[in-house]
């Protein structure tokens, strides 16, 4: 099981701030995970439509689209950060 966390407008578009689920076998990388997640609901699909505006952290480390997923516990999906 993995906990997915959503922040900012990604959270609003998906419609929840977190969900816990079992990743399918094809979710071997961050990009593949996003492809699969987009099929879960119209909200997921809309939130993830423009991948250039999506950033991901795997187990609290920033990750690239080609980052492999090895039994992650927590994956956060969010827009580019705007702090400071």
């Amino acid at each position: 099981m993995v906990t997915l966390l959503y922040f900012a407008w990604v959270r609003e578009m998906v419609g929840t701030d977190s969900e816990t689920l079992t990743l399918p076998a094809e979710a071997t990388t961050v990009a593949a995970l996003l492809d699969w997640l987009a099929t879960r609901s119209p909200g997921h699909d809309a939130a993830l439509a423009d991948r250039s505006r999506i950033r991901v952290a795997v187990d609290q480390q920033f990750a690239a689209p080609d980052t492999p997923l090895h039994n992650p516990r927590e994956i956060a999906i969010f827009p580019p950060v705007t702090g400071g």
Partner: peptide, 11 residues
């Protein structure tokens, strides 16, 4: 680096 590498979002 705070602007681009710290996980904050302004609304």
């Amino acid at each position: 680096w705070l602007k681009t590498k710290a996980p904050f979002w302004k609304r």
